[in-house]
């Protein structure tokens, strides 16, 4: 399946649940609502024609306007690649865990929780691991967080 065929397939089969975004500069990028996350993830993995069985990467992101969580998924058998993201405001930083669908998500979600302060529902293992155990200085990957002694590089 080429990139265009994949786009057509998604547009016909998942049209109402996945919104195409034109920000993806190489692979396809879609937006999924928080409520549909589990349903869409499961559907993409179990769809016979897609079989997105491989979670490449799960990454939180603070765009200065809102939070995003980007799921980069791939299919090992069908050789496909796709990204989708969920977007939510700072005061509703809580998402569902996709561990049951892709077990690899466990540590990625744990890291997202630790560094961004995005709550993960039904995770079961939200313990600190990158930061020190006694860390109490907030969420370092947020844009409003600067390290002590941090010097911002001048704009070029």
């Amino acid at each position: 399946m080429t990139k265009d065929e994949l786009k057509n397939y998604i547009d016909t089969h998942y049209q109402e649940k996945m919104k195409f975004l034109d920000t993806g500069r190489f692979d396809l990028m879609y937006e999924v609502t928080k409520e549909n996350l589990l349903e869409i993830s499961k559907a993409l993995r179990d769809d016979e024609n897609l079989k997105f069985d491989f979670l490449c990467c799960l990454s939180g992101s603070d765009t200065r306007e809102h939070f995003e969580v980007i799921y980069s998924i791939a299919s090992v058998t069908k050789r496909l690649r796709l990204d989708f993201k969920i977007v939510f405001p700072y005061d509703q930083a809580e998402i569902d865990s996709v561990q049951d669908i892709w077990p690899a998500a466990n540590w990625y979600e744990r890291e997202t929780w630790e560094l961004f302060g995005i709550q993960i529902k039904n995770h079961g293992n939200l313990k600190r691991f990158l930061l020190p155990d006694e860390w109490d200085q907030g969420y370092p990957m947020r844009k409003d967080w600067d390290a002590p002694d941090f010097v911002r590089m001048p704009e070029l």
Partner: peptide, 19 residues
Amino acid sequence: PAGEVYSRIENSRGEMGLY
């Protein structure tokens, strides 16, 4: 330009990706 990309390569250990 504004936009986003997830790109991956095969290094000696496996998939190295960058978003």
